[in-house]
Design a protein around this nucleic acid. Structure first.
Lengths: 239, 239
DNA sequence: GAGTGGTCTAGACCACCGT
DNA sequence: CGGTGGTCTAGACCACTCA
């Protein structure tokens, strides 16, 4: 298992400080020569390091040492900007598109509406210190937010919900699993097709329990650490 | 991007029902021939499908169609057995080892104690329908549970905490990120070295806020879907 | 013992990035 | 435009699984 040795070799380059956060690793051909192996085996080693979040790829640009990840609390109403700032990053957002669409099967299930129900769809790319880290797809129940697309929705939807419509989030249901990045989502994140991803799906409700929207988020795994505290509901023994 | 086509080809075999849950895929050589490619490219395709949770590898045994995943609520005190049963699986556990050790750097930070503080360490392998899905490492503050190792700790620590010591969980702090499986952990899960994993770390407290234990869990990604509902704490605008 | 997956070699071509 | 990463080929050997 030569690739494990190589993996540890590269990891020690990082731990020893010869490679620092956001720095590009040497070219694959140079690393392959340095570790006396071929590119295929080298990439096996780098892919494993990537799975551990220590390094990541930028499509056609090479491998980079991953900086500390942002702490993401799915149970908080804090939006991306607030969570990023708390972790010492400079957040930014880019609106990819915003339009009215019919709900797909997946979205219809999340929003608990029939397929093809008209909803607002808002696609955004978000960055930390100008590094793209997540693509979000929001789907919004139209009747709760008439004329939503006329507001400034690039930065924070939660702010608009609260300030323009007096409908802040009060409850959220979230799902987290692993996935992969494909197509335009991968491109926006400067990731190679098929790169691993963290998939976060949320359904958000306001104080009265009314369903407001859902969002589907594709995160670069190295950029996120999910963290939260919960007071647990003790269930009876016979549950 | 031939491997994307192959990936979709294999995915459609599954969606069309030609391959069903827990069934072994044809051998790599057979699939490579079927899709007119080499094993290297085929494995690229299968690895991407694995990242999406549709299939998984068992070390030296081949690729298998992944069954539905278990829904895991990190904010719940429900233990593994309860969560598994709710999802229709038959849970089982195997005690790997239980002993007294000095806290490592990582564990010391989680438990907020000095390095080398004596703690109980309990390693277990847990299965759904006899498929190994997670390896858990529990580290327990000794003074809260004197003589803990004399109880039946194979199945459920939370039950022992509650029934034998009257100290149920009341609060939990959790972290989730991606990682990879190595060494004995990989072997226990019948996974290949370097396979992707979901890493869940928890710190658990009792009602009085006393820190009880922490656990570090390495999950097979295909076997778990994290899901929870939270009433969110609305923060002020100037936070 | 046959066949499988795990690992590795030694190349190749191309599109694209950065200069 | 040179060099890089993305992708692919056509093999090989070995340890291990399974029949």
């Amino acid at each position: 298992m030569q690739y494990i040795t190589i993996k540890e070799g590269v990891a020690s380059l990082i731990d020893r400080g010869e490679l620092t956060a956001n720095k590009k690793l040497p070219t694959e051909r140079a690393l392959a020569e340095q570790f006396q192996t071929t590119r295929v085996t080298l990439r096996e080693a780098l892919t494993t390091l990537e799975a551990e979040g220590k390094i990541h790829r930028e499509d056609r640009r090479g491998w980079f040492v991953s900086p500390p990840s942002m702490i993401y609390d799915p149970t908080s109403t804090n939006n991306f900007n607030v969570m990023a700032s708390k972790c010492g990053f400079v957040p930014s957002s880019k609106l990819i598109q915003a339009k009215q669409v019919g709900a797909s099967q997946e979205v219809a299930e999340l929003l608990n509406v029939p397929v093809d129900t008209q909803v607002y769809r808002i696609d955004r790319l978000r960055m930390l210190d100008d590094r793209p880290v997540v693509v979000t797809f929001n789907y919004v129940i139209m009747e709760n937010f008439p004329g939503l697309l006329e507001h400034d929705i690039e930065s924070s939807l939660t702010d608009v919900y609260r300030d323009q419509y007096q409908k802040p989030y009060a409850k959220t249901h979230f799902q987290i699993k692993t996935s992969s990045l494909l197509g335009e989502t991968a491109q926006l994140l400067r990731a190679s097709t098929g790169s691993p991803a963290m998939l976060v799906q949320r359904v958000n409700y306001c104080a009265e329990g009314v369903l407001l929207d859902c969002d589907i988020e594709f995160w670069r795994p190295h950029a996120i650490k999910i963290e939260s505290t919960a007071s647990v509901i003790t269930t009876t023994k016979n549950n």
